[in-house]
Write a protein that binds this DNA or RNA. Sequence first.
RNA 1: GCGGCUAUAGCUCAGUUGGUUAGAGCGCCUGACUGUGGCUCAGGAGGUCGUGGGUUCAAAUCCCAUUAGCCGCCCCA
Length: 425
Amino acid sequence: MRYSAPRGTNDFLPDDTPLWQMVEDRFRSVAMRYGYHEIRTPIFEDVELFTRSMGEHTDVVSKEMYVFEDRGGRKLALKPEGTAPAVRAYVQHNLAAEAGVNKLYYLTQIFRYERPQAGRYRQAHQVGIEALGSQHPAIDAEVIALAMQFYREIGINALSLVLNSVGCPVCRPSYREKLQQYAQPFKHELCDACQTRYDNNPMRMLDCKRPECRERLADAPDILDSLCDECSTHFTKLRGFLDGMAVPYRVDKNLVRGFDYYTKTAFEIQSDALGSQNALGGGGRYDGLVEEIGGQSTPGIGFALGVERAIIVLKELGVVTTGRKPVQVFVAALGEQAEAPALLLMQQLRNAGISVDMDFQRRSLKAQMKLADKSGASYTVLMGEDELKNNSGLIRNMANKQQQLVSLDECCHTLSQALDAQSRR
RNA sequence: GCGGCUAUAGCUCAGUUGGUUAGAGCGCCUGACUGUGGCUCAGGAGGUCGUGGGUUCAAAUCCCAUUAGCCGCCCCA
């Protein structure tokens, strides 16, 4: 029997992982510069955490969660998103007791039972942040700026930032009613999905992609005209901050986010390099979520960005190099008597912080040189009969073929200096 | 969950109207160079033709099912 990875999951092989590491490293680096701290939460949680926070009528909750019961009868779910678990941990450990705003970042895997497609997998990776404890629009602006800076630093510039406000419990209900009233006369002409949305979540009709629905709803009431004073002021200030920071964006009154917990600010980052999965990431404010999960009423805002999608875009743009990282030194040992000295030298080099590899298949010198070349090593140390007679190794500079016989005691020091000089260049 | 396209070597792909031992390029191994990489040349290894059934004298090729990937819908990261 030959096994393969389950549907919708991926193996990331040594040629892939350096690119992933680059993306992850730069995300950490940007998040740190914005004053965020890493949080790690379990890969599974109580099912209820997600049904309560995201809303039981959302697709993710109603038909995409990996739900299971453990041997103790607990109803659990593999996490389908990162916000609810982070907020749960925030409440559980009373992080609110800390001074100031809690700024958290995470890198996580998420699980959703969906039909796989490029950029859409059953096990996917997200990086995200959550800022808890401020309702000031300045934090919204900072969160959005962070996301855009992250993309810039990994090498993605051609993006559109789409912005909207989805209101709050004060103004949203009346807007929903307005929308229903508006659509009521032609409700039966909308697609099946929209007819369901009409009842469950009328705002979702607005981002329907069907041309017929779009046309019918083109002149629907604008949520931005229906915002309460507080939401309206918040949105205006946010726009002012973004303008001030020179973060370009586009307001789209039809942008609606998928989960129920969003309030006020909603944003999405899109790329043309992706197909129908054109959202690289998105986020928004969730001022009611902490309370919903059982904490003190606390405002919050965050985002989640899809790592797979970012990597698809990077490859599409051709701005990145893939492949393994080179080692610095390769040791070519000839014959059995060279094995022990070779191992010793490698330990010395590694203790000195230098990456080293050798051949472990007892191959010919020629074959070992080929491996050395493939490994990307800057230097190869040849240890054969002649060298060992003199208690030495022959250090070969792979770039210019210059060779130098150096006593084994000096090899580590010599290589270390040569590599330093090289990296300074 | 719905509709469609695809599946041949590690990778990218050829494979005529079904017709003997299924090919190429790259990669891998060996040698030319018995202790020296990249270039070149010469050899070589490697394939249950995704899987299971069926039609046929004969199937990589036609039919059905199944699995997986991709495209659109849906959803979203």
